[in-house]
Amino acid sequence: MPQITCQNLTLGYEGKTVISDLSFAVGTGDYLCIVGENGSGKSTLMKTILGLKAPMSGQVLTGGGLSPTEIGYLPQQTVVQKDFPASVREVVRSGCLNRCGIRPFYSRAEKQMAEENMKKLDIANLARRCYRELSGGQQQRVLLARALCATGKILLLDEPVAGLDPKATADMYELIETLNNGGITIIMISHDINAATKYASHILHLGAAFFFGTKLDYLDRSGGCA
């Protein structure tokens, strides 16, 4: 039973189609990399999977014990965040909100989980720092810790290494791989074909050269010269 199934999705804005008739499925433990040119609809697809945007037709189904609110998300950065007064701990904890329901405050277990995720991502020493004063790589880790608080099952990452230096990029990829080995399904948008073919188990190529399948098929098709 796949965790996420997209059936005949057609996506677009105000009648302008961006992606048409897209179908694919992501199983538990998969590592799917979405690649494609700028504007090919990668972020749009991710927003649709998250339920932030309604598809023009088709549907997104969740299964395999995954509920639609258990999807962790690492967004492309927005402008508002740049000068927002928020401590790292506050940001990470906000990932627990989907467990709260109408309860107004975090439980002890939820606070504990936030601390553990900060330790896991090596940002425990930054807990009291201001989010906006961190480096890009540190900020990505904070957002990833927040996403981990929201779910232990599946993570959607929109360009997690954009703007990171080579060292931080390598660290980030390794971190994601560790999480994937720990059983978390990964769907990642990336412009880095080399990383995609190195780490992913499946590739979805949007745009003119459409492709969906396993990494090996992808390499075969492109003649092994990725």
Binding site: K47, G51, P68, G72, P75, S94, N98, A147
Partner: peptide, 19 residues
């Protein structure tokens, strides 16, 4: 309070996790 914080900080993420 916590919901206001999260919605203000990152509306998309907050919606995505079902708030």
């Amino acid at each position: 309070y916590h919901k206001i914080f999260s919605v203000t900080f990152d509306e998309d993420f907050t919606t995505a996790i079902g708030v």
